[in-house]
């Protein structure tokens, strides 16, 4: 795989991760990430056809809780760290597009 992280890839990753990078950051990340990805490429020299991906080392499943209330925060506690609020809501600049995913 081509491991050159060009400007376009950096800009795409920055957009996806909502980072408004400066020109110099884009240039710097392009160089640094290229070097890192080139190094990471070594994993693709290993043959892993018959190897299961290991997302988790802990051999557990079905960790489920009973459907019982555990209490909530007060409105004041919930908003205590909020940069901006209005009438008990979190306040943000007007959302113009409907981009909800659910």
């Amino acid at each position: 795989m081509n491991h050159q992280i060009d400007r376009q890839l950096v800009e795409r990753a920055a957009l996806l991760s909502r980072l408004e990078l400066s020109e110099s950051e884009i240039a710097q990340f392009s160089t640094q990430l290229s070097a890192i990805v080139e190094y990471i490429e070594k994993i693709n020299t290993l043959h892993t056809e018959h190897v299961e991906p290991l997302a988790h080392c802990l051999p557990v499943h079905n960790v489920l809780r009973a459907d019982e209330p555990r209490g909530s925060l007060s409105n004041a506690e919930a908003l205590a760290n909020a940069p901006d609020t209005i009438d008990g809501y979190f306040k943000v600049p007007k959302i113009l597009d409907d981009n909800s995913g659910a």
């Binding site: 555990r70 925060l73 007060s74 409105n75 919930a78 908003l79 008990g88 979190f90």
Partner: peptide, 19 residues
């Protein structure tokens, strides 16, 4: 463990997890 209740005042059925 926040209770599901319709029509509550805003941000009162919230906890560190769902926030």
């Amino acid at each position: 463990g926040c209770e599901l209740e319709f029509g509550q005042p805003p941000n009162t059925r919230v906890c560190p997890v769902c926030l």
